[in-house]
Simulated scan of single mutants.
Amino acid sequence: MSQAVVELLAKDLSAQGEVYCPHPKAGMQLWNGHPRVYLDVAHTGEARCPYCGTVYRLKAGEKVAHGH
């Protein structure tokens, strides 16, 4: 399993505070990918993909706006 860590900016998250994996920032190729899964990063600041183990983490100092 990969132990990659991908740092994200708040703008990389969806309106729901999620990111999908495999994500372009993770550098995965199509041939070794897995089904797309959506991971909630906004609530805890990080999430781990259950397929590949990649950790998606908000970059230090990044704030996620809740609501409009």
Rank of each mutant, 00 (worst) to 15 (best):
M1V: 13
M1E: 10
M1K: 10
S2R: 14
S2W: 03
A4Y: 01
A4V: 08
A4D: 11
V5T: 15
V5R: 13
V6D: 00
V6I: 06
V6F: 04
V6H: 01
V6M: 02
V6P: 01
E7F: 15
E7C: 01
L8C: 08
L9G: 04
L9A: 14
A10C: 05
A10W: 01
K11E: 15
K11M: 05
D12T: 03
L13D: 07
S14F: 05
S14K: 06
S14W: 01
A15Q: 07
A15E: 12
A15D: 10
A15F: 03
A15P: 00
Q16K: 10
Q16E: 14
Q16V: 00
Q16P: 00
G17P: 06
G17V: 09
E18G: 00
V19F: 05
V19R: 06
V19L: 10
Y20D: 08
C21D: 01
C21N: 01
P22M: 04
P22K: 00
P22F: 02
H23R: 02
P24V: 09
P24A: 05
P24Q: 03
K25P: 05
K25H: 06
K25A: 14
G27D: 08
G27L: 13
M28G: 00
M28V: 05
M28F: 15
M28N: 04
Q29M: 10
L30T: 04
L30W: 02
L30E: 11
W31G: 11
W31R: 12
W31I: 09
W31M: 12
N32K: 09
N32D: 15
H34Y: 13
H34P: 06
H34K: 11
H34S: 08
P35A: 01
P35E: 02
R36V: 15
V37C: 11
V37S: 10
Y38K: 09
Y38E: 12
Y38D: 11
L39F: 11
L39Q: 08
L39M: 11
L39V: 10
D40M: 13
D40W: 00
D40K: 14
D40S: 12
A42E: 07
A42C: 08
A42W: 06
A42L: 02
T44N: 09
T44V: 09
G45K: 08
G45N: 13
E46W: 07
A47N: 03
A47K: 07
R48H: 01
R48E: 14
R48V: 15
P50S: 12
P50Q: 12
Y51I: 05
Y51V: 04
Y51A: 09
C52K: 06
G53S: 10
G53R: 11
T54D: 06
V55H: 00
Y56K: 04
Y56L: 00
Y56M: 01
Y56C: 02
Y56R: 00
R57F: 11
L58P: 07
L58V: 11
K59N: 10
K59W: 03
G61F: 14
G61R: 10
G61W: 12
E62G: 11
E62A: 13
K63N: 11
K63G: 00
V64N: 07
V64I: 12
V64T: 13
A65Q: 15
H66L: 15
H66F: 11
G67M: 09
G67C: 03
G67Y: 07
H68A: 14
